[in-house]
């Protein structure tokens, strides 16, 4: 079977890009970075995200990375709003 393999040491993600768009990568990194800076714990973040996912799934499903990172961004925006 022939299959293009990533270079040794590189992640093998099943041929799927880690992020679909640069904005998703920025939003992802912002949350991880804020957690590293001690702005919130990861448990607080997960709770925030899970709450928004639950609300979203009452009327629509998450189908792809775009849907998912839109909710992720909303969680970040809500946290930033509370910081003002």
């Amino acid at each position: 079977m022939t299959r293009i393999r990533p270079l040794p040491g590189q992640p093998e993600s099943g041929g799927e890009p880690v992020f679909d768009a640069p904005w998703q990568a920025r939003a992802f990194a912002m949350a991880v970075h804020l957690n590293e800076q001690g702005v919130f714990s990861w448990t607080e973040w997960s709770d925030q995200l899970a709450g928004l996912i639950k609300n979203h799934e009452m009327h629509a499903a998450i189908h792809n990375s775009d849907d998912y990172y839109r909710i992720w961004l909303k969680a970040l925006e809500d946290i930033a709003k509370d910081m003002k």
């Binding site: 992640p11 993600s13 099943g14 880690v18 998450i62 189908h63 990375s65 998912y68």
Partner: peptide
């Protein structure tokens, strides 16, 4: 690494 899309899907 980070999860694949299907892992995050409803």
């Amino acid at each position: 690494g980070l999860p694949p899309t299907w892992y995050k899907a409803s």
